[in-house]
Design a protein around this nucleic acid. Structure first.
Lengths: 370, 370
DNA sequence: TTGTAGGCGTTATCAT
DNA sequence: ATGATAACGCCTACAA
């Protein structure tokens, strides 16, 4: 039986000097391997491996010794070797429009929470609302062999072929928020129809009669769902639906110029709106900025309700009525589902379509009495 | 010479069915390997490898054939195998307090831009201002064998040993924004002293005489630098430095309760401040919220200047005078330096300390005439 | 109970 | 010009 001394620890991560048989990456941090442990304890690598995997078919003494030594040496298995063997990377790829956005960064928080808990790491890519970059990210993540992907589509994505071809090849996918219209993918969304209905109804109840809807491109399903909620609320309150009041923004708000132009168009209508329902952070802020610039009183002349997760909504001028989506919750649910798809796909029958409730936070931008 | 038919493409990512000699991860996406190419073209793996690496010592015809086939099959090398062999992961670890924060998410944008350009991927971890989580992330990233790390310290970090021990073992590190006071690390910061000096001077010029400074814990170097700028501006304007007006927030603004209490303490001083310089998003918003709640007029009763990168600063009530840090630029510079440290450390002599200029955007919260 | 051998995908070295 | 081999670190079927 070997006696283990504490000085073992000092060997940890030593740089190997006997290292010239091949030109490897220099200046890399070297860690202890199973082979090192085996050598040190006069065992074979398989025995060490067994001990570390806590096999039952072995001498308890040996196992204890190995585990103790490994602990002292701060051993941790080389993830690259494990990945290579298992043909999985324990990594999840995330593709979304941008992270400098309250909604998406909260979403990522939810993703990370679940992922790290389950031993996955998260690799984040931004499409910046560009279809090309989205597809490039997709390819790169596939080539990096991530175990699964979470995606929120760019506002410009219409061709879903690249996604479907990966799905067919067996890559697990879950879409959230900006999901494809197709029924044949897993999706996590917030209750777009209902929250849009409620927001519109709220404006109507506050006496607004010409409510504009500023939204993302029409081929996104969140757009059509929100539009439908908006439309239904109008119908339920006997207000005519006017197509001139619906503005689809190609870049989903990412391009300031487009926002500016759209809002200007809206305000210069022969019969301009007295209320606006804006479908994203950017669109909402664009509105606010433009109304400020033109000294239009909010909500008296024009009321605003915006989809936004910004924590400062209440500190804006005026305090902003907001549809707050359960971003972190959506990230968590999506990740839970994805990991299930990765680890036990047979348990999941059919395609999941999960919808979580949003929260309408009423403030002064839509209700002058507050 | 083999003739290549287009149907090769359909083989891509096929699921291998002859796959029972060992229990591998099921349901994984299988990709084409060098071995597959070799078999298909009746070559050895070494020849294929050589062709793919564009070796000059080989038949041009063969090379062309291999490359064409690989292209058709959409071959991409298995990064796990490459990593294992090269003992490097082409991954950069990032640890920072939180991503749901304009400054940090812009910082990440900068990091990603450079990293992906250079073929690295970025793995992001949040400390959520907890020292324990920070250290746990550090260990995890080390065990994942990232090639280098970018770190912005949690507000509670005082013990830098875990970092230094990794640095000694050869792990490349670059700190940004919240950097250790030590001279013996690479750092990227904004010009904390100067921007704080300018902001304070701006308040003084606008007639404020009792300026409070709401800031992060005192052992962070950004705190001492900003404090020094503030102090110097007071001295230069013959205003006495009053310790009661300096409030260090243990959690750097992350805990709303602490912010609230701190601001309340400040306002209930026998001689309360008429101006506040707040050192972070959270602290600034905490102030704003509290002043709103108590109907204190900004800037007449109390003026505010805040360090913040929020794009909506100008839409707040009142529009907020902001010290805007070059977040994306800091991320880029940090990543460039880190990649240099990883790939050619010999080129870098001594420790780099890069400081980038901030921008003071004057709005109504500090200047009633605007 | 433990050791040996082979393989995951890639590439450098040596041999042909 | 090309092929065989070994090695990166880990795991496991099989042999001892």
């Amino acid at each position: 039986m070997l006696k283990l001394s504490n000085c073992f620890i000092s060997l940890l991560y030593r740089r190997k000097l006997d290292f010239d048989h091949t030109k490897r990456g220099k200046n890399t941090v070297e860690s202890i391997t199973i082979k090192d442990i085996a050598k040190a304890l006069n065992l074979s690598t398989s025995t060490v491996s067994r001990a570390l995997r806590d096999s039952s078919e072995m001498n308890l003494e040996t196992k204890k010794m190995v585990l103790e030594y490994a602990r002292q040496m701060n051993y941790s298995p080389n993830p690259m070797a494990v990945s290579l063997r298992e043909n999985k990377s324990k990594a999840i790829g995330v593709i979304l429009p941008e992270i400098a956005n309250s909604f998406f960064s909260q979403l990522i928080n939810g993703v990370e929470e679940v992922a790290y808990e389950q031993g996955y790491h998260v690799v984040i890519f931004q499409s910046h609302e560009s279809y090309e970059r989205e597809v490039a990210n997709l390819k790169y993540l596939a080539s990096r062999r991530v175990d699964g992907m979470l995606v929120s589509l760019s506002s410009l994505t219409t061709d879903l072929h690249p996604f479907h071809s990966l799905i067919e090849k067996g890559m697990p996918f879950v879409f959230f928020d900006r999901v494809p219209a197709s029924e044949k993918v897993h999706t996590i969304t917030s209750d777009n129809y209902q929250s849009s209905y409620n927001a519109t109804k709220h404006l109507l109840i506050n006496g607004k009669k010409r409510i504009a809807h500023l939204t993302s491109p029409r081929y996104l399903s969140i757009t059509t769902e929100r539009l439908e909620g908006y439309r239904r609320a109008l119908i339920d309150h006997d207000i005519p639906y006017d197509e001139n009041l619906i503005k689809f923004c190609h870049y989903g708000g990412a391009v300031a110029q487009e926002n500016e132009q759209t809002i200007r168009d809206l305000l210069s209508l022969p019969h301009p709106p007295d209320g606006i329902l804006a479908a994203s952070d950017r669109l909402t802020m664009g509105c606010l900025e433009h109304l400020h610039k033109n000294n239009i009183r909010i909500p008296e002349e024009i009321a605003i309700v915006g989809f936004t997760n910004m924590p400062v909504a209440g500190l804006l001028d005026p305090p902003l009525t907001a549809v707050v989506q359960p971003a972190a919750g959506m990230g968590k649910r999506a990740t839970e589902l994805l990991i299930q798809l990765i680890e036990s796909p047979d348990q999941i029958k059919g395609f999941q379509h999960i919808s979580l409730p949003s929260d309408l936070q009423v403030r002064r931008s839509s209700a002058s009495y507050i």
